[in-house]
Design a protein around this nucleic acid. Structure first.
Lengths: 142, 142
DNA sequence: TTTTGATTTGTAATGAGTACAAAAGTAGAA
DNA sequence: TTCTACTTTTGTACTCATTACAAATCAAAA
């Protein structure tokens, strides 16, 4: 068993999530992914490793991860939820041309100015989403 | 015809949207609404005034409004889109207890620090969403 | 080994939104 | 007015993401 899988196992345990094979592999997929995959995409790729896994398990697992604060839901791209590991707080940028979602560095992120109260409401979470044309598409278009 | 409807008519024309009865009534509904309704909610209420209106017309109309910059889509509450008139740029707060969506004043809004470029990407739009417990629910809970 | 509880699976259902073609409405030309 | 061309509206069927649920499987403790 690779060190990585061992690490993930320990990490999940530390978050009160029983580290089953399915959960470990989904976590591993998220860690290896540079994108911000949808549940569907995660299923498509993980099913190649675990042919018997069901889509429901992917949804269940993501739900558990979100509840334990391991994973964050992104609702930047309309109706479909994308998933991202909850690392240091950072914003996201959606390219309206190629559809890719980019991480914004924590230093540049507006969300860093996180307040715990706004206009009398208690704030638990702030999400800042930028939309436009990404660097690569800008260069390609010229 | 009330002044209000006349105003809406002129406003839609100024935005290159042909002011049909359906569009005027949907616009009127949005202006009167303090909430940030979903397409479903808009349909439910507008159909009381125009019994023959179809849900597709509501979706079509909202799409036209969004394209012309009259209305803004909010994807703060997971999978369902809420709609808001595009007034001065402002953020939104979702109460996780009662589900209401509140406007944040432009002065308090993080999105006001709007940048036109971030990490080399061209920014056309910024959305900041807060989630937590609203003032009213906080008071009620004590 | 038995028991108990958690996890996984598969299927069916829900809910939001879209596609599409027919019907109705609108405005201008003849 | 009537004809024509174009836009809007309608209704139905469909897609896609997600959830509900109950049966099956698995895992750990007694």
């Amino acid at each position: 068993m690779s060190t990585k899988v061992e690490n993930i196992k320990n990490y999940l345990e530390s978050k009160n999530v029983k580290p089953t094979y399915h959960r470990i592999m989904i976590m591993k997929y998220l860690e290896d992914s540079k994108e911000h995959p949808t549940a569907e995409k995660i299923y498509e790729d993980v099913v190649k490793t675990i042919p018997t896994i069901s889509k429901t398990t992917v949804y269940n697992t993501l739900k558990v991860f979100v509840e334990e604060g391991i994973v964050e839901e992104l609702n930047i791209a309309g109706t479909t939820t994308h998933y991202d590991l909850s690392k240091q707080d950072h914003d996201h940028f959606l390219c309206l041309e190629c559809g890719r979602i980019y991480d914004i560095s924590p230093e540049e992120s507006l969300g860093r100015n996180c307040v715990d109260t706004i206009e009398g409401n208690k704030v638990d979470e702030v999400k800042c989403y930028y939309k436009g044309i990404c660097k690569e598409c800008l260069e390609k278009d010229n």
